[in-house]
């Protein structure tokens, strides 16, 4: 936009900031099945529309309608589109050959790829890794069931503050740079290979953290004991722990992943796990009356690891 100086109608810095704020705040205010973020897009265009077409009611109407079409993208990185459309509207208002079709195709063409990238980086990688670290900081302990000791609130506070800064910062940079560089920014973003590096690097880090998280919070403990010929074989300590420490939680996580990969709905999986837990907790092997029986050694599974068996006798 080297010829910006020659433009008769110009957007001020304030207009761009306003547009950014409107989009940052209200991108999902009226999220709906029909057109998703359509009204939010139109809302964020209003500072530009007022400045550029404020004195022309017909153009105002046309511009508002133009931006009320179906729109959906990642709110943070996607604001590149808003910045670019600000620049295009500015050109159009000054009689440059920017057609309505060109604006629409920019929006439609960029919103899909940017949604994919934005959702993967923010929702798929950054939020879970930060959450995992913050969860680790709260002092949650699977071995005790979280009843002993008090939690540390600072991990959660760190999570909120960090995500807030990230969200607002990425929004601002994407919006203002989108305005300055137009749609070429999005193209160069995809071509540079930087995003690939970020995704691969974050996958490595994410896998480490998820692995540690599985080990620390997924608890599958078999309480069953087999008594034969005078000796007792505790399945957990005598079999599974000897095969490989942490074998059952690992198998559980990998099984869940495999089932989800195969297309199982997470809610189905959730119901299966709850049903299996109830069957596993029922004290089939305990003395009567069963509804007051402790799980120790009387059911297939056992809550948490700590459980002292009653003295044999």
């Amino acid at each position: 936009m080297s010829d910006n100086l020659e433009l008769e109608k110009r957007l001020t810095r304030q207009d761009v900031i306003k547009g950014w704020l409107y989009w940052t705040f209200f991108s999902h205010s009226n999220y709906n099945y029909e057109r998703l973020q359509a009204t939010a897009f139109a809302h964020s265009m209003i500072p530009a529309i007022k400045r550029l077409y404020g004195d022309d009611p017909e153009e105002t109407k046309a511009a508002l309608k133009r931006h009320l079409i179906f729109f959906n993208t990642a709110p943070d990185i996607g604001s590149v589109i808003h910045g670019a459309v600000y620049a295009m509207e500015e050109q159009r208002a000054n009689g440059r050959p920017v057609t309505e079709d060109a604006i629409n195709s920019t929006k439609v063409g960029l919103m899909g790829p940017l949604a994919g990238i934005g959702d993967t980086i923010t929702q798929g990688i950054l939020v879970p890794i930060l959450l995992a670290v913050a969860i680790g900081l709260t002092g949650l302990d699977a071995a005790t069931g979280g009843v002993s000791g008090s939690g540390n609130p600072w991990g959660a506070i760190m999570f909120i503050v960090f995500m807030l800064i990230w969200h607002v910062g990425v929004h601002y940079v994407a919006f203002t740079q989108g305005y300055k560089q137009g749609r070429s920014l999005a193209t160069s973003l995809f071509k540079s290979g930087l995003l690939d590096k970020v995704v691969v690097g974050a996958s490595v880090l994410g896998n480490m953290v998820l692995g540690a998280l599985s080990a620390s919070f997924v608890v599958v403990y078999v309480g069953l004991r087999i008594e034969a010929e005078g000796t007792t074989l505790a399945l957990q300590t005598d079999v599974f722990d000897k095969l490989l420490p942490g074998l059952l939680p690992l198998v559980t996580v990998l099984l869940c992943w495999w089932l989800l990969q195969r297309g199982m709905h997470p809610i189905t999986l959730l119901v299966i796990i709850i049903v299996v837990s109830f069957i596993g907790a029922y004290p089939f092997f305990g003395p009567e009356p069963m509804w007051v029986t402790d799980a120790c050694g009387s059911s297939i599974f056992q809550p948490y690891a700590a459980c002292t068996y009653p003295a044999a006798g």
Binding site: G145, L213, S214, F217, V218, L270, I273, G280, A281, P303
Partner: peptide, 13 residues
């Protein structure tokens, strides 16, 4: 106990 057990397995999802 059943709720505690499923509380141990549900994070896997």
């Amino acid at each position: 106990h059943a709720m505690a057990i499923s509380g141990g397995i549900l994070p896997a999802i």
